[in-house]
């Protein structure tokens, strides 16, 4: 006999109809997920500077009509800062669809120059992101046709660029803002920025400010513990250098001054690792909440 004699039977194996449906679902889901982008901005103030600001706020109410008007528009917070939409538009420019809600922080007390600098940075991130996405799309389209692609194959594909924001947490004196920037076409990439700001004194908070002098050990021990916990709870979870993952050179060892974080609705520190930093890409962006 010849082993190949079994080939026809092998290839005739019955393929469940469900297979193609499931494959389509996986691809669709993956595309959708790639289009969801989140960028988070955080603003936090200390109690001491909040008290100082509240005094100024009270004075301001009595002396400035414009200031009173501003304060009346504040949803919850007492008057330290609020988030406004500075640009809102939905437009199509050729093949590119723009859906933009760009936020800015209005500082009614404390160091206005500082929040102004943050606003400029948000503005710059949004502009750079949009410009780069448009450039990528144009270059891709040029390459597509330059390499013999046809209009039919191009099939009217478009790029969606989305910028949006959401106030995540608002409890005097803390304000937490989430900024979302997304692009979607044949593929997409994700970008998140975090700001942990002391609005009144005009500086960015560090992990040391929010976790104390022993911040490195506190964060490292908790992250290591949670990684092990997640691997134990989910057999498909994988982190570089843990369990049977052999990529030890990329294993998580320690947080640093550059490690990204934000504060969640409970005020807990949440440490964030970008995709691919401490785990395979399918694990996505990873967050670790460090409880007090």
């Amino acid at each position: 006999m010849n082993i190949r004699e079994g080939k026809k039977e092998y290839l005739d194996m019955q393929i469940p109809e469900e297979l193609h449906q499931r494959m389509n679902d996986v691809i669709k889901l993956d595309r959708k997920r790639r289009n969801e982008r989140k960028v988070i901005c955080m603003i936090k103030r200390t109690m001491a500077s909040a008290a100082a600001c509240l005094v100024i706020f009270a004075a301001g109410l009595n002396t400035s009509a414009a200031f009173a008007e501003t304060a009346a528009g504040l949803p919850v917070i007492g008057g330290l800062a609020r988030v406004l939409t500075v640009r809102s538009y939905h437009a199509s420019e050729g093949d590119i669809n723009l859906d933009m809600e760009v936020p800015a922080i209005e500082n009614t007390s404390g160091d206005a120059a500082f929040t102004e600098a943050v606003n400029q940075e948000i503005e710059k991130i949004v502009n750079d992101y949009t410009a780069q996405a448009e450039q990528e799309f144009t270059a891709y389209k040029e390459a597509f046709f330059a390499t013999g692609g046809t209009e039919e194959e191009w099939n009217g594909r478009q790029m969606d660029i989305l910028v949006d924001y959401e106030v995540k947490y608002q409890k005097d004196p803390v304000l937490s803002l989430e900024l979302t920037a997304a692009k979607g076409w044949v593929a997409a990439s994700e970008e998140r920025h975090y700001y942990n700001l002391d609005v009144a004194s005009g500086r960015e908070l560090t992990l040391s400010d929010v976790l104390g002098d022993d911040w490195k050990n506190i964060a490292n021990e908790e992250i290591d513990r949670q990684i092990k916990e997640r691997i134990a709870a989910d057999p498909s979870a994988s982190f570089f250098g843990y369990g049977d993952n052999e990529l030890t050179e990329a294993k998580f060892t320690s947080v640093s001054e550059d490690t990204e974080f934000y504060l969640n609705a409970e005020g807990d520190v949440v440490i964030v690792f970008p995709k691919y930093e401490i785990a395979p890409g399918y694990m996505g962006i990873l967050e670790f909440t460090i409880q007090d």
């Binding site: 006999m1 010849n2 082993i3 190949r4 004699e5 079994g6 080939k7 026809k8 039977e9 092998y10 290839l11």
Partner: peptide
């Protein structure tokens, strides 16, 4: 052919996988 395919499927995995990849 059916018998052959069936016999291949009864091979231990370490032999079966190379066989189907090579011949099928």
């Amino acid at each position: 052919g059916e018998d052959v395919c069936e016999a291949v499927m009864k091979l231990p995995e370490q032999l079966r996988i190379p066989v189907i990849l090579r011949y099928y």
